[in-house]
């Protein structure tokens, strides 16, 4: 038996702390084993190539619309809020552009967009792989001698290597949205805004953002795959697995965001 029988307060401690902790640890363990398995016994290249193109289409191109939409509006809101809080006449108006650039490039484009993608792309990945699990299509692949993890997950990881391009678009769109809201809403002149955009520019911030983005891309491709691949049950459970997968993908992104920020900027 994994856990010896115990009584009283210790028992409560076990039930509320040790057992959940063990569950998380074992989940992390099987996630790592899964990731290792993904890179073993690769599928034939001509087949893999077409799978990768399909995933690029599904995961990246199909997400661009929502990414552009969200970024424009978020950029706009950041600009308006900064402008409304700028009451002290000693602070130059160009700060509006500066604040928009900093918040969009550092956080909103990479992190906020990734949380949205954890929902959009993540639930697609979990439900498509989960459906294959419950209808035994994954078993069918395995019985044929196909490495189903490589076949299903590897193309998603490769497709998500293009994710930084989507985030670059998000950065442009966020700043464009800020400019539109600021200039058209008469909060700032175009010249002031652009001056702010160029103020104290540190290219390393962009590097930092793209490093984060690549890590998030890997998380968005693999964590939902894990939840779909190892799910049990029927059609109803596919829905539940998608929800759980979204929660965990977001949690992992937020924790990694904190750690990476400490490491890269701290």
């Amino acid at each position: 038996m994994l856990f010896p029988p115990i009584q009283g307060e210790l028992c409560y401690f076990y039930a509320t702390t040790i057992i959940p902790l063990m569950t998380y640890l074992s989940a992390i363990g099987s996630y790592s084993i899964m990731v290792k398995e993904v890179f073993k016994k690769p599928t034939k290249w001509p087949i893999m190539k077409s799978l990768i193109f399909k995933e690029i289409d599904e995961l990246i191109f199909n997400s661009l619309g929502i990414i552009v939409f969200i970024s424009l509006f978020i950029g706009g809101v950041v600009t308006i809020q900064t402008a409304l809080n700028l009451e002290n006449p000693l602070i130059p108006v160009s700060l509006i552009g500066f604040a928009t650039r900093q918040s969009v490039v550092l956080e909103f484009a990479p992190t906020f967009t990734s949380i949205i993608m954890a929902g959009k792309v993540g639930s697609y990945i979990t439900s498509s792989i989960g459906t294959m699990r419950v209808t035994e299509q994954i078993d069918a692949l395995e019985v044929m001698g196909v490495n189903s993890l490589n076949y299903l997950v590897f193309p998603k990881i490769i497709a998500m290597l293009l994710y930084p391009f989507a985030i670059a678009i998000a950065m442009y769109m966020g700043i464009l949205g800020g400019w539109m809201a600021g200039v058209w809403g008469n909060f700032t002149s175009s010249a002031d805004f652009i001056e702010g955009l160029q103020m104290d520019f540190d290219p390393y911030h962009v590097t930092y953002s793209f490093i984060k983005t690549l890590v998030f891309a890997f998380v968005i491709a693999t964590v939902p795959s894990y939840h779909g691949y190892f799910m049990k049950g029927g059609a109803l459970d596919v829905g539940k697995a998608s929800t759980t997968s979204f929660v965990w993908t977001s949690v992992v992104i937020i924790i990694l965001n904190f750690i990476l920020t400490q490491l890269l900027l701290g």
Partner: peptide, 8 residues
């Protein structure tokens, strides 16, 4: 397979 398990 009992449920056919075709790739849909």
């Amino acid at each position: 397979f009992q449920g056919s398990a075709l790739f849909d």
